[in-house]
Design a protein around this nucleic acid. Sequence first.
DNA 1: ATTATGACTTAACAATCTTTAACACACAAG
DNA 2: CTTGTGTGTTAAAGATTGTTAAGTCATAAT
Lengths: 228, 228
Amino acid sequence: MEQVKILLAEDDANLGLLLKEYLIAKNYNTTLCEDGDKAYDEFLKNPFDLCIFDIMMPHRDGFTLAKDIRLINSEIPIIFLTAKSMKEDVLEGFKLGADDYMTKPFSMEELLVRIEAVLRRTAGVKPENNQEEFKLGRYTFDAKKQYLVDGDNTIKLTTKESELLKLLCNNVNKVLERNLALKTIWSDDNYFNARSMDVYITKLRKHLKEEPSIEIINVHGKGYKLIM
Amino acid sequence: MEQVKILLAEDDANLGLLLKEYLIAKNYNTTLCEDGDKAYDEFLKNPFDLCIFDIMMPHRDGFTLAKDIRLINSEIPIIFLTAKSMKEDVLEGFKLGADDYMTKPFSMEELLVRIEAVLRRTAGVKPENNQEEFKLGRYTFDAKKQYLVDGDNTIKLTTKESELLKLLCNNVNKVLERNLALKTIWSDDNYFNARSMDVYITKLRKHLKEEPSIEIINVHGKGYKLIM
DNA sequence: ATTATGACTTAACAATCTTTAACACACAAG
DNA sequence: CTTGTGTGTTAAAGATTGTTAAGTCATAAT
């Protein structure tokens, strides 16, 4: 399971950090740069799947940055973030091959769904990366088919078991926060759903008990962590 | 270069005509429908490359229309146009697989550049309205003739079997929600029809049992998912 | 007209999934 | 240590789904 890499250029440190934290929490590998020059250097050094650029930045504005990057990569999706909502700017942005253009202030959730919409279309370019398979020690976990395979023994997981294990796998060795998991899988983080989640953690532990190198540990008051 | 066909659903006759004229002037073959029902019928009759839907419309609102169309074609790009800018609506729109979401009032030029941005990404996705043939591993499913072919062995499917399998195929690897399938095939989602649907799922599973790479899995409380 | 056939629905019961309840234990703060 | 809250675990309850078979209806064949 490959992580999507996002290059984020935003000179407002507050907004930048906020966005970065949020995107990382949503499992996007996010690199933040505080101006256009730094973002350009970063782009040259590392491969990315998606760009999110503020327009007004020191050293190199978002439009110029996009133009320069388009010279190197004409396919990578670009989303512009800006306080300017003037028509000419929007048009200019799309002329540079933007995939979306969001005017501040915007909600983080809206940015997220727009990112997903763009990636959904971009992913179609290379349609093989849907393989949702994880190696867990002696086990192989197929999130799509909801199977947990251990040699010749195949355990069929239920939907909830599979969704939860997948979230844990996407955050190996990191804390999967309760409320995030609940909102993602149960769409509501009330007391009863939280207890239900605990029950599923027990179920998963039982399923994985044959492999001592894998453990789901609790982080008190925070959530769970899959370690391996 | 074939002309791009746009299905436009907008109940405000003034705005609708204005948009239609504008899009036609920009060389988009545009069909205007004044409500959701007419748009749905039009979609069933002819193949399109892009949908542009108003949200608030008589007979069938834009969201419902999109949901119904997604059952038949899960790939066609959809842009929502609306006066509602509330966060929940935007998120709802994208959850239905929207590609963009524009809040009125907007400039026609901005709509145009956003259309172009969407089409740039979806280029190569041919309109699959009339696609009636699906490859299911070793099987070939002809939805029109209601045949399921496996080498020299041809199984004749009943109408309901075929309709259900077609819906599943149109949503491969995604959850086909019970109530949507029931509304589409049985036109009513009461308890008995739901049970009938379960019976047909069993029948389909039996028909597809020779191909282990294909499975119809249940998503508890939600619906079924054809995975391959 | 009667019978046979096939598609679809309804019934019945088994199996499974998820939630809720109950009680035991662990952790952090005072 | 004690208390309140969070977590581990099991079991039961409640709901959904799997499956087979019988029932219903329309149509075709005799």
